[in-house]
């Protein structure tokens, strides 16, 4: 496990975190009026951005850290499946899907003796 030390940690976070994210926010402001909402370039950017975040989500579910590392994969996937089913039945209200997924996970962990 590597943890950054001293002032270098703040420089590291400021460059690789702060600048790396605000760069796009600033470009977003400058593009604001110019980028056409229906342009094909924007559509592609949207797709890449969403796929990126989806890949992060999949990794968090398949390869979690901490306590969940020891939990069975079928329980995590089962929780997501139950949450997704409830989400679509419940007219795509986020809170319904989230509550169901977390409840199934909690019950599963409890039954397995965590």
């Amino acid at each position: 496990m590597t943890v950054l030390e001293g002032w270098w940690a703040y420089v590291f976070i400021a460059i690789a975190g702060w600048l790396a994210t605000d760069l796009w926010r600033w470009l977003g402001v400058l593009a604001g009026n110019r980028l056409r909402e229906d342009s094909e370039v924007l559509n592609w950017v949207r797709a890449v951005a969403t796929a990126l975040v989806a890949a992060v989500i999949a990794k968090l579910i398949l390869y979690p850290t901490g306590i969940l590392e020891q939990s069975p994969l079928w329980l995590r996937l089962g929780s997501i499946a139950a949450g997704a089913a409830a989400f679509f039945v419940g007219r795509q209200k986020p809170v319904i899907g989230i509550a169901t997924a977390i409840a199934v996970l909690a019950i599963g962990l409890w039954v397995l003796g965590f």
Binding site: A16, G17, A20, T21, L23, W24, R25, L27, G28, V29, A31, G32, N33, L35, E37, L42, V45, R46, V48, A49, T50, L52, V53, V56
Partner: peptide, 16 residues
């Protein structure tokens, strides 16, 4: 980090 944040640009551009 910057690749994961590209999505912020269209989001901001749409909000402004």
């Amino acid at each position: 980090v910057t690749l994961s944040s590209i999505r912020l640009m269209p989001m901001v551009a749409a909000l402004i």
